[in-house]
Design a protein around this nucleic acid. Sequence first.
DNA 1: GTTGAAAAAATATTGAG
DNA 2: CTCAATATTTTTTCAAC
Lengths: 149, 149
Amino acid sequence: MELDETDRTILRILQSDARTPFSEIAREIDMSSATVHDRVGRMEDAGVIEGYHAKIDPRAVGLGTSALVGLRIEQGRETDALERLREIDGVQEIHLTTGEWDVVLRLYAEDTDGLRELMFDEISRIEGFSRSQTMVILATDLEAPALPI
Amino acid sequence: MELDETDRTILRILQSDARTPFSEIAREIDMSSATVHDRVGRMEDAGVIEGYHAKIDPRAVGLGTSALVGLRIEQGRETDALERLREIDGVQEIHLTTGEWDVVLRLYAEDTDGLRELMFDEISRIEGFSRSQTMVILATDLEAPALPI
DNA sequence: GTTGAAAAAATATTGAG
DNA sequence: CTCAATATTTTTTCAAC
């Protein structure tokens, strides 16, 4: 789908606040709210807008500990291993990467003990990983909720 | 702030769809929409809900390439280096970690050339980094927009 | 594609238990 | 904290350009 500058402005606004009324967006882009409604609908249909999500403070829900985990997967076991990773509660992201690791995970847990449980009782039990490295996130300095559109 | 099971259910719903009408949430938790309104407002005020954001497909806006970058920072240069990193367009996340790297970044760029520009023209120019490793994300298998509440 | 206006639906507010 | 009722806003639809 082709996006013009108006579409991109709408995306910027909805990225920073998904609950901005269409009427307010309409004022900012100097068009009617019916147009905003139309354009947003088309971007939703086209998959440009994938969804609207509340951002929750992880600590507030008892998930104060996070980590990045690099994994090496033995050849031929990729599909199975990934499928099992996907099913684990606390595995928030799975990225396939170039470089030292084949896969990098982002984990969330209650505390370091929860992290240990995730690593030893869940992830380590999956066959196919030859090596791993855990990087505990001490602090997140920036986690921009919006892409630089 | 103390969250009861009702609050957590509301959070789960708003995480998966931030635009769910309060009336529908009310039906699901079997309370009035005024109560939902009240609880959501209190969770917003308390910072439990940090915001509502549209999730945009990065490829649709020309940001089809992403990478993780590990960095080592020379002692004493942490504050300055982080501040400059924060200002760079395309640096989406900055995590301070234990282990091999002091800092791990998540970058977004148009393509591999944009990634090179980010790395060589922006990040490498910042003083204080002694070593770095770039892991290009070939694919993202999972990127859950919701925490396991 | 866009618009204004009407209809439908949702949210914000109020007052009371 | 919760609710019902009311007031206000927003979303949605639609005929017309």
